[in-house]
């Protein structure tokens, strides 16, 4: 599975539409480089990338945590 396929699979979860991050059905065409840069999706991308790149768990978590802190 590519990183985009993985991302789309996560975005299919109803939590993203229920909480207003995405429009219903939007997940299917969502692109990795989506310009809106929705925070939760950006964090998810860091986690997916960490997995695809076989990065250490602690490293990925630290990166994601730092990213959220910088954004908030």
């Amino acid at each position: 599975m590519t990183r985009e396929q993985l991302l789309r699979t996560y975005l299919e979860d109803e939590i993203f539409t229920e909480n207003g991050y995405l429009e219903p059905g939007e997940f299917d065409s969502f692109e990795w480089n989506d310009k809106r840069r929705i925070l939760i999706i950006e964090v998810l991308k860091i986690l997916i990338k960490g997995e695809i790149d076989k990065e250490g768990k602690a490293t990925t978590v630290r990166k994601a945590n730092q990213f959220i802190s910088n954004q908030l």
Binding site: L6, Y10, L47, I48, E51, K57, A58, V61, N65
Partner: peptide
Amino acid sequence: SNFDNISERTEAL
């Protein structure tokens, strides 16, 4: 296993 690993990371986060 990708999904399992990502779940682990989100839990740790």
